[in-house]
């Protein structure tokens, strides 16, 4: 069948990312960092890291805007995933097995590696179409969200580097919906 011959590049990158075992209790963050760096090179974007205490890093891929002094936009996702019990799975949870109908099975397929790759593949399409924007985008990959963020985001927001990002707006994860609609979470500011 010729129709199944070429996989969409976005799907290929998604499955590659899903195969990196970033599951607690020992997420392979080093391998994820390598993946991000290579990806940034491929897209012609800047890859960099912010070091956190306890041997953790935040990985960033930046698409600089034409007016970099404007508040930027953070496209957030977390690198880590929760543990899985392979004996309850149809396929190995880090095989990213794709069934005939296109269902891709993996720990992280929904929460939230689809989002991280979604941002980057959207940027690939926009760049390929020759788009340039005024604002800078920071695709941001954080560690340890699934264990409460104490060694991840909570440390990152305290850094000088975070302050310098000058974020005006951020996107984070939502959740799947079995129906036609898409679920969206919003909040009043400073409710905590």
């Amino acid at each position: 069948m010729t129709s199944a011959a070429v996989e969409n590049i976005a799907v290929t990158r998604f499955r590659e990312y899903l195969r990196i075992n970033t599951s607690h209790p020992n997420p392979d963050y080093a391998k994820a960092s390598e993946f991000y760096k290579k990806y940034a090179d491929e897209l012609g974007l800047t890859y960099w890291q912010v070091e956190l205490p306890q041997n953790r890093v935040v990985d960033l891929i930046t698409w600089e805007g034409l007016e970099p002094t404007l508040p930027s936009i953070m496209l957030y996702s977390h690198t880590d995933v929760v543990p899985s019990f392979p004996e309850h799975w149809k396929y190995d949870p880090f095989s990213a097995h794709k069934e005939e109908n296109g269902d891709i099975f993996a720990r992280g397929a929904q929460d939230m590696k689809c989002v991280g790759i979604g941002y980057l593949e959207a940027i690939r399409k926009l760049k390929t179409a020759g788009k340039r924007f005024k604002r800078t985008f920071h695709v941001t990959f954080c560690p340890d969200e699934e264990i409460g963020g104490l060694t991840g985001m909570i440390e990152f927001v305290k850094t000088k580097e975070f302050e310098k990002l000058n974020i005006g707006f951020a996107l984070d994860e939502g959740i799947a919906n079995p129906g036609e609609e898409f679920r969206l979470f919003y909040s009043e500011r400073n409710v905590w």
Partner: peptide
Amino acid sequence: ADMIGFSPMNNTPILLHDHNEYLNE
């Protein structure tokens, strides 16, 4: 920062943290 939580997944059962987590291509 102002922010929104959004993952573009409709027509998809909620399987985060569950066995057989999947997403259709």
